[in-house]
Design a protein around this nucleic acid. Structure first.
Lengths: 217, 217, 217, 217
DNA sequence: GCCTAACCGAGACGGTACGTCACGTCTTTTA
DNA sequence: TAAAAGACGTGACGTACCGTCTCGGTTAGGC
């Protein structure tokens, strides 16, 4: 966690402090430069290392010294732009899940973060190892929080006991994702999180259903 | 719509048949060339127009004559690689949804299709107009099928009446998506579609829940 | 000779005429660009390919397509800038040699040619193969002319018969060279060629020398 | 002159001895490093300051503290590699000149010295001030020795009195130069110096020449 | 026996140029 | 007139050096 909080380049050599140390200001200037360009609406495809260096007022070598390529750099940019995890109320499993979904929904709205995340996310999917790195640093921790919330709900009797928790988690997260990723033009209305949580918790079958279900073959 | 159904290049001139007609063999060679390269594991980022032309044994101009760029070409490639819509059993809403989710799940598995779709999908998200085109040609039709299934279920009393159908659709599609997109390493087990459908239809709350829900603030 | 007269790039592929032919205008623009820069007093060390391309309004690739590097390009530049061989009077060996030396002397004076030759000559000495190429194209032909003049002089009885013609040639050329190369600041006065030729032909020993020479051991 | 004899860096500050004095070992290591690289056949063009520093096991700053650039450094390298002036026999002008030419000839042969001088000489011609520096330190002194020998020969009646001594000097030096510089592949045979001296002293015209010379226009 | 200034190797800094590659356009010959 | 071929200007790629500037750590006098 500390290594994540410290963020920064991924190419730091093992040997300690020899020669002039790398300037943190340069590090910041590069990441900020990428963000500035993304905010200004520059398409991700036009984000060349040369342009980033020009914008940040930095030599190309200063970038390659820290990151081995465009994608590695973007992981750090995303990490920096990620909003902090929201505090959980803890009053109930349902309330906690609503808060988690809300934080997911917010990310598709805030200008700065959104512009950055939206593009970079897609870009990183093209490099498996990059995606792995992003997954480990950003996605997995949030997923663990969600599973922990579900585990507590299970202990408190707030959840059916016959289902895989991983699947349950996806039932909540999925609907939000399908809107953020597949339908980016649609806005995400404010009550969406609660609608999803309540619908999933209650089920979609009408109260007195005629039970038309066919048995599994 | 017809032009989309017919697939092929999008730059066909309005004027009919003058001079030497465009060779369909060239058209096929190009699309097949892209697919071959993707199947061979060439990263999408390394798919240059020049390499495609070289592989297909075709001049660059022949490509630019048909498509205005890499992305437009990819839309046609994806369209060609898309598996056909599965026939719906029609026995019940639940069964129809299971079939639709199954066809979604399959796409993450079949080698040829998967290799192509996975990469190209991510790529296209980077170009808004491309995404729109892909959305209209591929995603929207399937979504319409799903909504139609839900509408019939609603009429038959198989569904709660107090929910937005769009949201209901996302409740089913989302969990499958979150696994295909966000967790590509995990396999998609065979019974997954039914698990999702049944869980969403029944709800997650235990039969005699203590109803710990806190009122919305 | 024809290949030299045609000059031009040295990387022309063996296969004849396929695709768009190379533009001669581009060829000229590049060579002229180098000359312009040299005339403008740009030090040879600052003549980067990038700058040449910028000056000539040409892409870097257009240069690398024709020449494999800076040095190869310079050979052609020099070849283009070389003044034509002067016509020989043929009245006598002495007169012919004077004319040849004069043409050598002139080269150190004319602004355009001089500025170019002076620098480039030094540069090329650093690459053995380049030097070989330059030697074959420029130096050797002139040397052959000089030796031919001497051969005719020998037949006409204008020359001692006990000396190697190569050495005799160097006796004439050397003094001019030592001034042009080793003492570039000194000017080359107008009567220099005749002074050299006559002194070498007559010898430096006084008419009635005391003959102080010691015998060779 | 003393400063040259002392050799070493040219950037010594005016203020005397404060702080840690410069290590002579570093000085030597740098010059030796350049020589080692040249002997190993590294082309002069590939002799970067960074590579020299690496080879010498020295920081780049240590080099820039002593010399203001690559060329300045090379002057000192050449100066170190220069063979000492040969002792003159003094028996006659002819013998002295033969010895001087011999020392010139030798330089093109000895491995170590030759490899260094040959390249560096060409390089320095590209920088006028460098050339001036090299000229003053190396070339001019030898030239002065040659002129002094000629002056003594003139006094002793060993030389025609109607010629400029500078020109006479060039008549001797030139032929050796044209072979060393323009035809580096040819070897310089052992009797060459005497051949040149005797031919120049005696003249090339046959004993009873038909005097075909045409009068100067 | 400190103090202090200049040295030392190492290496980061903003730059410039390298030679390669792909872009999308254009200009040929061939069919 | 479309076809393959390939040259065109443009501009990014990742590397190597440039000459300057910190770093932490010596290494000498002068006090």
């Amino acid at each position: 966690m500390t290594s994540l909080a410290k963020a920064g380049g991924t190419l730091r050599p093992a040997t300690p402090a020899r020669g002039r140390p790398r300037s943190e200001a340069v590090e910041r200037a590069i990441v900020e430069g990428v963000m500035k360009l993304l905010e200004d609406g520059v398409p991700l495809a036009e984000l060349s290392i040369e342009r980033i260096a020009r914008t940040a007022g930095v030599g190309k070598a200063a970038i390659y010294r820290r990151w081995s390529g465009k994608e590695e750099l973007f992981v750090d940019v995303v990490r920096t732009a990620e909003p902090p995890d929201p505090p959980l109320p803890g009053t109930s499993m349902r309330d906690d899940i609503v808060v988690l979904l809300e934080s997911l929904r917010q990310r598709g709205l805030v200008t700065r973060t959104s512009a950055i995340l939206h593009n970079v996310h897609a870009q990183m999917k093209q490099s498996p190892k990059l995606w792995a790195s992003y997954h480990e640093a950003v996605i997995a921790p949030r997923r663990r929080v969600g599973l922990e919330v579900l585990r507590r709900g299970l202990e408190n009797g707030e959840l059916r006991t016959d289902l895989d928790l991983e699947l349950v988690n996806d039932l909540f997260v999925g609907p939000m994702l399908v809107r953020a990723i597949m339908r980016p033009d649609d806005d995400l209305p404010e009550g969406l999180s609660e609608q999803i949580v309540d619908a999933v918790l209650e089920g979609l079958r009408p109260v007195s259903s005629p039970s038309v279900s066919s048995p599994t073959p």
